[in-house]
């Protein structure tokens, strides 16, 4: 299936990814806080969903048939805000209001402030349950949308994540796709030294998920996995996307330092230079 992905599609996604990454850095820098590490790791997955996979119409954010994207790891809000802004849901300049008093861009995604956000999340292990409820609602009809939940690997330590996964498998929700942003780090350090979750793919299979393991930064693998997930009709699909925390910025990669810490002005300059992305939100 990966062969069906054209070079043009890949190039287009790489372009939007660069824009989203630079906006994530500008936003968190302007806010002086936030979660750049986990936003950069999930960036390519969110980008591929928002610009390729999901059935969306920015001119009709309340379209009943739109696909639902639930960012269960709500702290990666900058990645979703940046992607949706680029897709036309909100003005790109507004991204720099992240986390400021009065802003619609809350520290964790908030559907009360931004109507095209499907679920307000933040406390971990809840968005995945809400996604299960949305998928059940679609099954009751008459709508036919699909629901995608993005969860974090620290979030896989939460019991409620497994409650929700159990329910998705039990109800054989073939209209549900769960994507794990497996960047290997949580706030205090590596997941495997804090509370290991491996073998995570085996666990998901045991919970009745058609489980795929891919690189979360390789668009051919990402789009191939999405296509395969759509073809599965017997139950839910899980994608374990191996990612790099801080992906795209050399000094942020593979460390938990920037899990919850914004870049300084000097770091922002270096990072943007590395990305080679001068455009985007105003500075």
């Amino acid at each position: 299936m990966a062969a069906a992905t054209s070079d043009e599609t890949i190039r287009s996604l790489e372009t939007t990814a660069r824009e989203i990454r630079s906006d994530i850095l500008r936003m968190t820098h302007a806010a002086g806080s936030g979660h750049p590490g986990g936003s950069l790791s999930v960036c390519d997955l969110v980008n591929a969903l928002v610009f390729h996979e999901l059935r969306l119409d920015p001119t009709r954010p309340d379209w009943p048939e739109r696909d639902r994207l639930v960012l269960s790891k709500g702290h990666a809000a900058p990645a979703l805000y940046a992607a949706l802004a680029l897709r036309g849901y909100l003005p790109r300049e507004e991204l720099l209001t992240l986390r400021q008093l009065g802003s619609r861009l809350q520290g964790h995604v908030d559907r009360g402030k931004l109507p095209f956000i499907e679920a307000s999340t933040g406390g971990l292990g809840q968005g995945i349950g809400m996604a299960v409820g949305m998928a059940l609602a679609a099954r009751l009809g008459p709508t036919t949308y699909r629901t995608v939940a993005i969860i974090g690997d620290g979030e896989c330590q939460a019991g409620s994540t497994w409650e929700a996964l159990l329910a998705g498998g039990h109800y054989r929700l073939s209209n549900l796709l769960v994507i794990l942003d497996r960047n290997g780090y949580e706030t205090d350090g590596p997941t495997e030294s804090i509370m290991g979750i491996e073998p995570i793919a085996d666990k998901l299979r045991a919970f009745r998920y058609h489980t795929l393991e891919i690189s979360g930064h390789d668009y051919r693998e990402i789009l191939g996995a999405f296509a395969e997930a759509r073809s599965v009709t017997t139950g839910p699909t899980a994608i374990v996307a191996r990612t790099v925390k801080g992906k795209g910025v050399s000094f942020m990669e593979g460390t938990h330092t920037y899990h919850g810490k914004a870049p300084t002005s000097a770091e922002l300059g270096r990072a943007l230079a590395e990305l080679g992305a001068p455009g985007g939100a105003a500075q």
Partner: peptide
Amino acid sequence: PERFFNVGVMEPTMMSIAAGLAISGRTA
């Protein structure tokens, strides 16, 4: 039966699933 979900012993997630159903237009 088609509108009833006995989710077992998972009260926290019963609440998040109920929220997802409600956000999708159902009264739960």
